[in-house]
Design a protein around this nucleic acid. Structure first.
Lengths: 118, 118
DNA sequence: TAGCGTGCTGGAGCGGCTCCAGATCAAGCC
DNA sequence: GGCTTGATCTGGAGCCGCTCCAGCACGCTA
């Protein structure tokens, strides 16, 4: 699978995928005889995970750490589990921020209605 | 109220507050005789709103537009109402992303448990 | 064999902060 | 009055996470 398809399936841009590879966020991507990147189903899954993590605010340094652990094999599963659990907790924090913002917006919108009187 | 207190109340950093002012995201901040910024309760409220919007992903360009509309008075309330409604819809999109990520993490963690067998 | 599509690299640019140097001023202490 | 401490100021550099672009290399097809 080529980079354009990898981009389509992961939701990341082509540039972002290359950037992530350069930055050590992915296990090494193999190349075809023509020198172009070839993405395996596994690396597509990896990209989807990266996309999901970045969309929910995980910093690149953490993703890099996760990638390094992954490459060291199953022995690092406890460490990886902990990272993912911590990120799952982060999701709750972000959900709370969304809720607070939602409440604030509802209040503002309410006030607008009162001012306009409609 | 001085900038350090404004930072404490809004959750923004001192540098970010100055940056937002420079960038036109706030109604002009008045200065004391000593040339230092003086924040009114209203401008604190404004900062809290900005903090909430940026925490939930509103781009600066939109915040700037909102600030400009605000300064043009009540006649811009319909436009402002629309902006806030659109952002409220964005919150739902982000909640969905958090949910998807949560599901993915749960699945990964489940797999880790199976591999480790505990 | 010319053109088109896709990909490559290296590097510049950008949004949104964050940090820092060097200056100023206010208050408290001797 | 001088001295230190602490908060603030401005201007500018630096950083993260992309995003875009120039210039080149393939391979397909008409």
């Amino acid at each position: 699978m080529r980079i354009s398809q990898a981009a389509a399936r992961s939701g990341l841009s082509i540039d972002t995928i290359r950037y992530y590879e350069r930055s050590g966020l992915m296990p090494p991507v193999t190349r075809g005889a023509d020198g172009r990147r070839r993405f395996s189903p596994d690396s597509i899954d990896w990209l989807i995970l990266l996309a999901s993590l970045r969309d929910t605010g995980m910093p690149m340094a953490q993703m890099r750490r996760f990638a390094q652990l992954y490459q060291q094999g199953n022995v690092t599963i406890p460490a990886r589990r902990q990272m993912l659990q911590e990120h799952a907790a982060q999701l709750d924090t972000r959900r709370a921020a969304l809720d607070r913002c939602g409440a604030l917006l509802a209040q503002k919108l309410q006030r607008y209605s009162e001012i306009e009187g409609d």
